[in-house]
Amino acid sequence: MAETIIDGKIIERVSEIARLRLSEIEKEKFEEEFERILKKFSIIDEIKVGEKELYYVVDNVNVLRKDSESKPFNNINGIKNNFNKIEDEYIIVPRNL
């Protein structure tokens, strides 16, 4: 199978999609590493695979719960205390300008 080419442009795109800023040094380092890591990983090409993608290793299906009255969470303050700002009982996080 054709090798995936890792270059600076791809690293840049990945870092944008991953929402993770990288310094120039990091970019260079990861570029070199990724190429090495993916090359190692490409031995999976040797394995004969079927079409089945195995997402779940246990066979649980149709797991539902009974419809019931909702139980209010008993430690709302515990949630609020993790945020710096509360206004009229609402959590305030940074604005999206």
Partner: peptide, 12 residues
């Protein structure tokens, strides 16, 4: 090339 392939190989 990678993720789906790994999921398939996982069965093996």
């Amino acid at each position: 090339r990678w993720y789906t392939k790994a999921l398939k190989a996982r069965s093996a």
